[in-house]
Design a protein around this nucleic acid. Structure first.
Length: 292
DNA sequence: AATGATTGCAACCGCAATCGC
DNA sequence: GGCGATTGCGGTTGCAATCAT
């Protein structure tokens, strides 16, 4: 037996939404609120699947949706977040006010992804799929020409996306943070960021036990942005998956532009140009973490 | 001007997670 | 705890607009 369809497909409209349908949906949700998508079409008098209504509302009709071109700052942020989170578009979108996961996904696939593909022939862009390996974006002197490419050898395997509810950073980060208060550079503590699936939380793995709480709050990015990590002894991927399916971030990290700037940003060999402007991201951070 | 190729994006589909009984 | 219903997510598709020849 196959899975029953989310709703009867018979007699339902498909394809582009009409202005009238938009109006009906908007007015219904303004009165009754979001949710109950399955029953919404019938109650609102729409010949649409509930999922279709939800998608239309979230991606197009919802108030606050920002239409138009992705700005350079937004693109920069998308790339950074993608490097961190992989193809978790909803999480990335959650950090870009007014942008939807669909829009960011489309933008990545049509713009950034293409740039990356052009830069590394034969190396396909793959799902960073949390829980699997994460994508690595190498950013070198070509950045000035908006040329992005993947680190050589980072041909990663695409896996089915899995929903992850937690990103947890190990003690080592906190420890690092403590160290860096007295030691600005040269700290070689190793960062491990874990993406925790709900189903894995109950096992007895000591590492998973450690990752009890979501720590992706303001401090998460503060710490991340201020980290200085060593070159990984592991070649190739920045995000490694060990036998227990934990992902450890070995080389990829974010770093704020330093005033002392002999700083280099070793995402791999030359991931960041020292002159690269990190201010847009730090500006987000300084504005508080409402954007998270 | 015609037409084939490419691009951009809205919408669809299937699966996994979550909810509620 | 089991199970069906519902919701949310990410990958993919379809098509209109634009570009190139």
């Amino acid at each position: 037996m196959g899975r029953s369809p989310c709703c009867s497909k018979e007699g339902l409209n498909k394809g582009a939404w009409t202005a009238l349908e938009d109006k009906i949906l908007t007015e219904y949700i303004n009165i009754h609120g979001e949710g109950k998508w399955r029953h919404l079409p019938k109650r609102a008098g729409l010949k649409r699947c509930g999922k279709s209504c939800r998608l239309r509302w979230l991606n197009y009709l919802r108030p606050g949706i920002k239409r138009g071109n992705i700005t350079n700052d937004e693109e920069e942020l998308i790339i950074r977040l993608h490097n961190l989170l992989g193809n978790r578009w909803s999480l990335i979108a959650g950090r870009l006010p007014g942008r939807t996961d669909n829009e960011i996904k489309n933008y990545w696939n049509t713009n950034i992804g293409r740039k990356l593909q052009n830069g590394t022939p034969g190396c396909s862009i793959t799902n960073g799929g949390a829980g699997s390996t994460l994508n690595t974006v190498q950013h070198d002197e070509n950045v000035k020409n908006q040329e992005w490419h993947y680190d050589k050898g980072s041909c990663l395997v695409q896996t089915k996306a899995t929903r992850w509810t937690k990103v947890t950073v190990t003690n080592e980060i906190s420890q690092h943070n403590e160290n860096s208060k007295t030691n600005n550079v040269g700290d070689h503590s190793k960062m491990k960021a874990f993406l925790v699936s709900p189903s894995s939380e109950s096992n007895n793995d000591p590492v998973l036990n450690f990752m009890e709480n979501l720590e992706m709050d303001g401090n998460f990015f503060s710490e991340l942005m201020n980290m200085d990590l060593p070159e990984s002894s592991c070649q190739g991927n920045n995000i490694l998956e060990d036998n227990d399916n934990h992902c450890s971030v070995d080389k990829g990290y974010l770093s704020p532009k330093s005033s002392s700037d002999t700083t280099h940003f070793p995402w791999g060999d030359s991931l960041y140009d020292p002159n690269f402007d990190f201010l847009p991201v730090t500006t987000f951070m300084e504005s508080g973490f409402d954007w998270l």
